[in-house]
Computed example of a mutant assay.
Amino acid sequence: MAKSQSEENSKQESFGTAKVYINNAKSILNKATGFIDYYDFTLNPYRGCQYGCSYCYAAAFSPNSKMRQDWGNWVIIKQNAVEILEKELQKWQKKNPDKPASIYMSSVTDPYQPIESKQMLTRGLLEAMVKYQPILVIQTRSPLIAKDVDILQQFRRLRINMSIPTGSEQVRKDFEPRTPSISARLKAIETLKRNIRYQESHWIRFSVTITPLLPTFPEDEVDFIRKLEIVDRVVIQEFHPTQTRSLVAGTRQEAENIKQKYSWWYDNEQLNYLQFKEKLDLLLSGVEIKEGKAGFGFE
């Protein structure tokens, strides 16, 4: 009988509350499709995510239904990722000598989830990539990214997307209690902007992705929005449609249950979405405001 994906992964240890497994990946660059088909590839250093956000669509891509239900309590380390990436980038460069690969890191995990502080796998991948100078977008909600400023500043075409779905700490704690604070994420962006030296030939930009748009208490809205002036782009998006099938990306039932606590927002979700966008447009005159898929392109 063939082994399941979870059986093929060898358990290494625990890290925090998560079970940690090691896996050898067959490929690390996967063709980008759907929502991020602007790019040639997606790159996911890990499988699973310790942040375990209640609404995360990536749970749909767990190895099996049991691990889907246990989302946030396991992570798989792709231990050969750097070696595989080197080979795949060499192959791309040979076939496309005048066209750098465009890479979105990451689509179904956070490359800077807590295990990265120990494994430094994402850092190793960045070190491998910088030699080939791909067009790179990094999607994270972790201040850990700031520790790699020395490598990040070597990229010529880079966009860093910091996910901050709400401007209210209580809302964050309800929907994504394991994640870093809002202030820590904003501070990380400030640190990166302050320490990445300007170079005329480099194109490095910063976004805040408010995706999905979660409620922000009225008393927090203006202060939160004004703090977003440090980036050049803000992206907003509503929740994915709810899906019950195991391998379909959608809003998980866990998040649907939490939404009931915020009926003052979700009973008029469309109106609140539009009003929040209007405030972004009004208060962030020098910042590009984009919605949904249009906001996840590189430029």
Results as ranks from 00 to 15, higher is better:
221 E>F: 05
158 L>S: 04
149 V>T: 09
187 K>E: 15
102 S>G: 11
190 E>F: 08
130 V>E: 08
46 Y>G: 07
246 S>Q: 13
111 P>M: 08
228 L>T: 05
200 E>T: 12
286 G>I: 05
168 S>H: 08
24 N>G: 01
190 E>S: 14
288 E>H: 10
194 R>S: 14
285 S>G: 11
272 N>S: 11
61 F>N: 03
123 R>L: 08
169 E>V: 10
242 T>A: 14
137 V>E: 11
38 Y>R: 04
106 S>L: 03
276 F>H: 12
118 K>M: 08
37 D>P: 00
146 A>Y: 01
210 I>F: 07
17 T>N: 10
26 K>C: 06
208 V>P: 02
220 D>Q: 07
92 W>N: 02
114 P>D: 12
129 M>C: 08
26 K>M: 09
77 I>S: 01
152 L>R: 04
185 R>M: 04
219 E>C: 07
66 K>S: 03
228 L>P: 03
13 E>Q: 14
4 S>H: 13
109 T>R: 01
50 Q>F: 02
36 I>T: 09
65 S>Y: 13
243 Q>L: 06
34 G>S: 13
297 G>K: 13
12 Q>Y: 12
200 E>I: 11
103 I>A: 06
68 R>G: 01
213 L>C: 07
59 A>G: 10
284 L>M: 05
173 K>P: 00
205 R>F: 08
84 I>L: 12
239 F>K: 05
10 S>R: 12
43 L>W: 03
235 V>L: 07
177 P>W: 08
125 L>V: 04
23 N>V: 00
164 I>N: 04
52 G>T: 11
187 K>P: 02
248 V>H: 06
45 P>F: 02
283 L>S: 05
93 Q>M: 07
273 Y>T: 09
157 R>A: 07
62 S>T: 01
203 W>G: 00
267 D>A: 15
147 K>F: 10
14 S>R: 13
246 S>C: 03
120 M>Q: 11
186 L>H: 09
29 L>S: 02
281 D>Y: 14
20 V>M: 05
7 E>Q: 15
279 K>W: 10
18 A>F: 02
122 T>I: 04
110 D>K: 05
17 T>V: 07
162 M>Q: 13
161 N>T: 12
176 E>Y: 02
198 Y>W: 15
95 K>P: 01
81 A>S: 13
151 I>C: 04
49 C>E: 09
70 D>S: 09
34 G>T: 11
250 G>R: 14
237 Q>M: 10
124 G>D: 06
48 G>V: 01
298 F>L: 13
39 Y>W: 11
45 P>N: 05
77 I>L: 15
107 S>Q: 05
289 I>N: 10
278 E>V: 06
107 S>V: 04
283 L>W: 14
113 Q>S: 05
267 D>E: 15
119 Q>P: 00
120 M>F: 07
89 L>P: 00
298 F>H: 12
64 N>E: 15
160 I>A: 04
140 T>Y: 00
150 D>E: 08
244 T>F: 10
105 M>F: 02
71 W>D: 06
169 E>S: 12
114 P>G: 09
18 A>G: 02
269 E>K: 10
203 W>M: 14
19 K>H: 09
11 K>N: 07
163 S>H: 07
9 N>D: 15
45 P>V: 01
287 V>G: 03
277 K>M: 12
123 R>P: 00
141 R>I: 00
220 D>H: 13
170 Q>I: 13
187 K>Q: 14
16 G>Q: 05
35 F>Q: 12
89 L>R: 01
208 V>D: 05
11 K>T: 12
19 K>E: 10
